[in-house]
Design a protein around this nucleic acid. Structure first.
Ligand SMILES: [Mn+2]
Ligand SMILES: [Mn+2]
Ligand SMILES: [Mn+2]
Ligand SMILES: [Mn+2]
Lengths: 215, 215
DNA sequence: AAATAAATTTAGTTATACCTAAAATATTAT
DNA sequence: ATAATATTTTAGGTATAACTAAATTTATTT
């Protein structure tokens, strides 16, 4: 599998979590910053390799083989992110780009030794679950902060958006995974929230609350 | 710089340590397991990018820019090898292939953080020197065991050949970097040596002695 | 100084992974 | 149901990095 093929498989995997009935050509093109015609070319190749099942004009789904490959790539991506943050001292907004390269390193032995070295983490620095060596992903129940009951305490356990801008905002507000959050007040007009984070009061927009997972 | 370009630059670097007057097309082809005509194509491209100076039919040398790039690739290769052995528990005969991939990961910050994480090692698991962030390589004086005075003790500090076969042979004979070696007797007919390694007697061929660096 | 051999380059192909523009199909609006 | 619009595919083209076979240049013999 080439790096390009792996990138397609990974994108199809992520998109299929949202559209399990079939992933559109244009959606893939958007994620990979490429043209729809290039996507069509690649879908044919992936289909020939039995990694996706593809019906012209009706999108693709991953085959079992494709799904497993995708999970192994995601596993590598997230393990490397843990390594970069926990061992090398990168901050959580710096690691995605580097992990995009590291996820294509081939050795299975490497991934499994890295996993052990990191202590078999179950989530990456953004709270995303890490598939195990067999591809099994632990399901954790989580809610968006925007949809949570008022005056009940939760823990931050992940981010939905992991753009640099959002992660840096969270750093600035001292919101980290593990922080204790409680919604104190909800403004009906625009859904702005007044929250208590680790004891400190803070006003946050709906857009922020809508990208923070809690448990 | 593409992965392919980096591989060429690195091979030219290694060959130029032996032939500083100019590296031949065929030598490069041999190392990269490709054809001379492919090499010629690439040399033109590298020359256009000012990474090598190339005169048709007369081989190439690295420019300053090319030399620096080469050292940075070698730096990454060797640092990753240290990581794989020291942190992940790979043995020294398993790491080269993986490092061949890892050496192409782009982030400069990554290399320097990795370097710090590893404690700024000066040599890789095979005893080869690791260029620092500026490209400076510490010169250590070393001799081949085959050329060393009799009845004088030395330390093993590196291997010339780092093929799996040779490294596994050394493992089997309990010869490692750091071992204390003394040549006890030299057979004039075929240069076979009787050596004492960490106190134990052993007979080794000239070919073995010719691939072990001591100090 | 030729002749022969070896090394290197050029010319012409191939596969991958992109692209643009045009054609085909599907979706939506009238 | 037809027309308009959006999506997707096809057709034809580019750049990279490989290849084979032929031509050219350099090195070695005689
Ligand atoms: Mn990421
Ligand atoms: Mn992540
Ligand atoms: Mn190596
Ligand atoms: Mn090495």
């Amino acid at each position: 599998m080439t790096i390009s093929e792996e990138n397609y498989i990974k994108v199809i995997y992520h998109l299929s979590l949202v559209s399990p009935r079939g992933v559109n050509t244009n959606a893939i093109a958007g994620m990979l910053d490429t043209k729809a015609s290039s996507v069509t070319d690649m879908l044919k190749k992936l289909s020939d390799k039995d990694l996706v099942s593809y019906q012209k004009y009706h999108g693709v789904t991953l085959t079992d083989k494709g799904l497993h490959s995708a999970k192994m790539i995601v596993r590598k991506h997230r393990l490397w992110e843990v390594f970069l943050v926990d061992k090398l001292g990168f901050s959580w907004d710096e690691v995605h780009e580097i992990a995009e390269e590291l996820e294509h390193i081939k050795s299975e032995q490497l991934v499994n030794k890295l996993d052990a070295f990191l202590g078999f983490p179950i989530a990456d620095p953004h709270g995303d679950p890490i598939p195990n060596a067999k591809g099994v992903i632990q399901k954790v129940e989580k809610q968006l902060l925007s949809e949570v009951e008022i005056n009940v305490s939760f823990h931050c356990i992940g981010v939905k958006d992991s753009s640099t801008d959002f992660l840096k905002y969270l750093d600035k507000q001292k919101i980290a995974l593990g922080s204790v959050v409680k919604v104190v007040e909800k403004e009906n007009f625009d859904d702005t929230l007044i929250v208590e984070i680790d004891g400190k009061r803070l006003t946050i927009s709906n857009k922020i609350a809508n990208n923070l997972y809690v448990q």
